[in-house]
Amino acid sequence: MLTVDYDLLDVGPGMRVLDLGCGEGRHAFEAFRRGASVLAIDWGASEVATTRTWLHAIAAAGEAPAGASAEVTRADLRALPVPDASVDRVIASEVLEHIADDRAAIAEIARVLKPGGRVAVTVPRYGPERVCWALSDEYHANEGGHIRIYRGDQLEERLAAAGLRPTRTHHAHALHAPYWWLKCAVGVDRDTRATRAYHRVLVWDLVHRPWATRTAERLLDPLIGKSLVVYAEKPGSTGD
């Protein structure tokens, strides 16, 4: 399940792509399959191990084109082990809301991007996230949980303050917002008949991508899409 639109980010063969807060690797996998040279970074040791395992499996299955490469490492997003101006594309999906000093992480994104490079940042959308916080402290007030809720203009201002130029935005995953509202209402860790049924629908949608749910989500994303996606560029030439 991708949050970032790879066509809008314009990820292509031979590009150096950095996936920050990669989690279990979903965005890194797609960049790898598109022929990029991928570096996936996360602070969690288990997330790094899982991402590395799946990237090796993708390579072994021949799903990545010749010339593509992938690495995974554990690192702090506020001090990236990446040279200045060395990356063509950066993805930071659902990670900034976990970082106390998010400005330092955004400054690192700007530092490692080449002039003309692009970044896609995704965070929980303000409205749906406020509902989750109102329904449940357990949802966010835990170790490694969400420590802030971004307004769209606030996120764009922080990107601009680091020298990046926001270019466009969209929302994603509208069908997931009611699921999390339900989870927060009944208890995040409670496994109820209702939450199991809703989860089965989400898995079915992910696997089969039927016309009905894809159309419904496309229509609902502007209203209740759970994620906000902001694309930005680093001013300058794309020349190496």
Rank of each mutant, 00 (worst) to 15 (best):
S136C: 08
R148V: 06
Y150E: 01
D101K: 08
D189G: 10
E129W: 03
R16S: 09
A79E: 15
L219A: 15
A45E: 14
R193F: 13
G21Q: 06
L9G: 01
A60T: 00
L202S: 06
V95T: 12
M15V: 01
V201T: 14
V123N: 01
A197F: 03
R158N: 15
S69F: 01
A40V: 02
A70S: 08
V38W: 07
Y198V: 06
D240P: 15
Y179C: 04
E24S: 09
W54L: 12
D84I: 13
T192Y: 12
H170L: 13
Y126T: 01
D84Y: 15
P83F: 10
D101Y: 09
S227R: 02
P65F: 07
A174Y: 05
I109F: 09
D191F: 04
H173D: 10
D205C: 07
T122Y: 00
T238E: 11
G239Q: 11
W54R: 15
W211Q: 10
E94G: 04
D189R: 13
T50K: 14
M15C: 04
L175P: 04
H140D: 04
D5Y: 05
Y198Q: 06
D102S: 09
A172P: 02
L55M: 09
R16N: 12
H27M: 10
A194Q: 09
L20P: 08
R74V: 01
T167G: 13
A68Y: 08
R78K: 15
H140R: 06
R34I: 05
P128H: 02
R218D: 02
P65Q: 11
Y126R: 11
V121Y: 11
C132N: 15
W54Q: 14
L175Y: 03
C184G: 02
D10C: 11
L9T: 05
L18V: 07
G225S: 04
P128S: 01
T50D: 11
Y231T: 09
S227N: 03
D19W: 01
V72Y: 10
H56F: 00
S136N: 05
L159C: 13
A36F: 05
G152W: 03
G144D: 00
A68L: 08
T53E: 14
A160V: 03
E129Q: 14
D84P: 14
K183F: 00
E97M: 03
A160E: 13
D153T: 14
L77W: 06
D240E: 15
Q154A: 14
I58G: 02
I58Y: 04
K234T: 05
M15I: 00
P166W: 13
R190D: 09
A141T: 12
A49N: 08
A212S: 10
H27A: 05
T3L: 05
T169W: 14
A104N: 02
L206P: 03
G67L: 04
T195D: 05
D101F: 06
A134E: 10
A70V: 00
A61N: 09
G35H: 03
R190S: 06
G62V: 00
Y150W: 13
R200P: 00
F32G: 00
L80D: 07
A105D: 13
R34A: 04
R209C: 06
G14L: 00
A134P: 12
R196K: 12
A100I: 14
R52C: 02
G187D: 01
